[in-house]
């Protein structure tokens, strides 16, 4: 009988533990969806450097030049590096949130992350804290969280401490991707028109040649607009993730509330839809 009692106690305790996990399942699920959606960044069709190279090539094409076509895109390379760091730090924050919201993931592998964050080794780029003020706060939070023993108890402080810097990082990411890369594509559209306009209107060319130039122009325009559409969807993803995190922050004392559950479910389904749209656009 003592054996049966022990079995019963273990069963009851396990049930409570599972219930505890289940009660924050909506946070875990939303975070998983956020991670998947944020990772769409890696499949985005454009970067600062790529646009710089394309613009440079168009200038050489306009001059009928294919020799000595070097382009100085070093500022764009740095812009990409900063944007990549903002993205990867935001992603790591979400991975941390996933770990503290789900006991099953408490053994989250953080060795590589902690090494990177503590050494400040980001390859060729030396990050200026003035460029991304939120970065150092967030990386400190990640280090603190993963150096602890019981992550599950830390979800409250994790969300509170991470709220401001995480929102800032996503704002910067949105600015660079949907503001600046999108803007550079707008400029590229105008440069292409500037180039094709004179050829399409050149009455010394044959009708066939002028028509071909017009077709080429519209093909190039459609290609850029398809890329901009992806950036639009990615921007929506960032807004949904920010909204979800704000919901967690504002209800941090009652994460098991129905309002939080339904809010995260709604935002999660929007994120899933956005991920499907981006996949279809690729």
């Amino acid at each position: 009988m003592p054996g049966k009692s022990r079995y019963l106690i273990i069963t009851i305790v396990s049930s409570f533990m599972l219930m505890g996990c289940y009660e924050l399942k909506h946070v875990t699920e939303f975070t998983e969806t956020s991670i998947e959606a944020l990772q769409s960044y890696e499949t985005l069709p454009q970067s600062f450097n790529q646009i710089c190279k394309e613009d440079c090539q168009l200038k050489h094409v306009a001059k009928f030049n294919i020799h000595s076509t070097q382009c100085d895109c070093s500022p764009e390379v740095k812009a990409d590096s900063i944007t990549n760091i903002i993205y990867s730090t935001s992603l790591e924050y979400l991975n941390g949130l996933l770990a503290v919201s789900d006991k099953q993931l408490a053994k989250y592998q953080t060795a590589d992350l902690t090494t990177t964050l503590s050494t400040g080794n980001y390859g060729s780029l030396k990050l200026n804290e003035n460029d991304v003020k939120a970065y150092s706060t967030l990386s400190s939070l990640l280090l603190r969280t993963f150096s602890g023993i019981n992550q599950r108890k830390k979800i409250k402080s994790y969300v509170i401490d991470g709220y401001q810097p995480f929102q800032q990082l996503l704002t910067f990411l949105e600015l660079n991707v949907h503001g600046n890369i999108y803007g550079k594509l707008e400029v590229q559209k105008q440069s292409i028109k500037n180039f094709y306009f004179d050829h399409v209107n050149n009455k010394n060319l044959s009708t066939y040649e002028r028509t071909k130039f017009a077709e080429d122009y519209f093909n190039a325009l459609n290609n850029i607009e398809a890329q901009q559409k992806e950036l639009d969807v990615f921007s929506e993803i960032l807004l949904e993730i920010k909204a979800g995190h704000t919901l967690l922050y504002e209800h941090v004392e009652g994460l098991k509330n129905d309002e939080v559950k339904s809010g995260l479910a709604r935002l999660g389904s929007r994120l899933s839809l956005a991920v499907r749209i981006i996949s279809n656009l690729n």
Binding site: F48, I51, C52, P75, D131, N176, N180, V187
Partner: peptide, 16 residues
């Protein structure tokens, strides 16, 4: 002007 504009978008990404 287009060249200056695209350069400015890059500057924005670099500056605070």
């Amino acid at each position: 002007l287009l060249g200056q504009t695209t350069e400015l978008y890059t500057k924005s990404a670099l500056l605070v």
